Simulated scan of single mutants.
Amino acid sequence: MDTTPSAAHTLLADASVRSRVTIPLRFADGYEVTAEAVTFHGLADGKEHVALILGDPTAAAAPLVRMHSECLTGDVFGSARCDCGPQLREAVERIAATGGVLLYLRQEGRGIGLYNKLDAYALQDAGLDTYEANTALGLPEDGRDYSAAAQMLAALGLAELDLLTNNPDKARQLRDLGVRVRFVEPTGVFATDSNIRYLHAKAEHTHHTIRLPETAAFATLAG
Rank of each mutant, 00 (worst) to 15 (best):
A97R: 14
H41F: 13
L103C: 03
I112F: 05
A60L: 03
V38L: 03
L88R: 12
I95A: 11
R110I: 06
E32P: 00
P57R: 00
K47Q: 14
E48T: 13
F77H: 10
H49K: 07
V92S: 04
A97T: 09
L43R: 07
Y31T: 15
E70P: 01
G127R: 09
A61W: 05
A60R: 15
Y121M: 07
D45F: 08
G113K: 10
E93P: 01
G74S: 12
A80S: 14
G111A: 08
A59V: 09
H49L: 09
A60V: 02
V38S: 00
A96N: 12
T130P: 03
T73F: 01
A59I: 07
G111K: 05
E32D: 06
V33S: 15
G46I: 10
Q124M: 13
N116Q: 14
R89F: 11
A96D: 14
S69Q: 06
A62P: 00
A28G: 07
V50R: 12
K117C: 01
G111V: 08
K47P: 00
L114Y: 06
G99I: 03
L103M: 06
F40G: 08
R81Q: 14
G46M: 10
I95E: 10
A28L: 13
V65T: 09
P57Q: 08
L105M: 15
L54G: 04
G30K: 01
L64Q: 13
D83R: 02
M67D: 07
P57C: 05
C71S: 08
L123E: 06
T58N: 13
Q124R: 05
Y104F: 04
V38Q: 03
T39M: 07
G85E: 09
D56I: 04
G113P: 08
T130D: 04
E70R: 12
E32V: 08
V50S: 02
E93Y: 04
R94A: 11
A122S: 13
L103V: 11
H41W: 13
L128K: 14
H49T: 10
L88H: 05
G113A: 02
A44G: 00
S79F: 09
V65L: 09
N116D: 15
T34I: 15
L88T: 02
D56A: 06
A122G: 12
E108V: 08
P63E: 12
Y115P: 01
F77Y: 15
A96M: 03
A62V: 15
T73H: 01
S69F: 02
R66M: 11
L54H: 04
P63M: 14
G74H: 06
G30W: 07
L118P: 00
T34M: 10
R81L: 11
G74L: 06
V50H: 00
D75M: 01
S69E: 08
F27W: 13
I95N: 12
G78N: 05
T58Y: 08
T58P: 00
E93D: 10
A62S: 15
E70G: 02
F77W: 12
D83W: 05
Y31I: 05
E93L: 11
T98S: 12
V50F: 01
A37D: 05
T98F: 00
A44R: 13
G109M: 07
L105K: 00
Y115H: 13
R89Q: 13
N116T: 03
K47I: 00
L64M: 14
V76G: 02
G30E: 04
K47D: 12
E36P: 09
Y115L: 15
V65P: 07
L114T: 04
A120I: 05
G109I: 10
D75A: 01
